[in-house]
């Protein structure tokens, strides 16, 4: 299991209906590519976050597939339209099967 993994999200607490808001997400993760070797010449096994999704009230906002060239601590910034009050559900999927989740509630009005 990857150590020191911690998801973070910055989203507004409230918005107007129909407003486009900026969402920032970052997860601390070493994103070991599987291409490197240790000092003994052995390949360091790949260990990355391979998928990131953001849903709003069950509707998919972004669904990102990640590959080994993504740098450490992957950061995503995107825009989302807020149709009504609800919850953002953020999910990160680790190579080792771990799933990291974060929820943010947005009020309207």
């Amino acid at each position: 299991m990857a150590k020191g993994v911690r998801p973070r999200v910055k989203a507004p607490r409230s918005a107007e209906a129909g407003e486009v808001v900026v969402i920032k997400t970052l997860i601390s993760h070493k994103m070991e590519s599987g291409q490197r070797k240790d000092s003994d010449g052995n390949v360091i096994p790949r260990s990355i976050i391979n998928r990131f999704t953001c849903e709003y009230n069950g509707a998919m906002v972004v669904d990102v597939e990640m590959h080994p060239a993504i740098s450490t601590n992957p950061y995503f910034e995107f825009e989302a339209t807020i149709p009504e009050a609800g919850d953002f559900q953020f999910t990160w999927y680790d190579d080792d099967g771990s799933v990291y989740e974060e929820t943010k509630t947005v009020k309207v009005g």
């Binding site: 911690r6 973070r8 920032k24 970052l26 601390s28 601590n73």
Partner: peptide, 12 residues
């Protein structure tokens, strides 16, 4: 602070 990756290490 959200964009400052140094803050990851502050949390650690």
């Amino acid at each position: 602070d959200f964009d400052n990756s140094g803050m990851i290490f502050v949390d650690a």
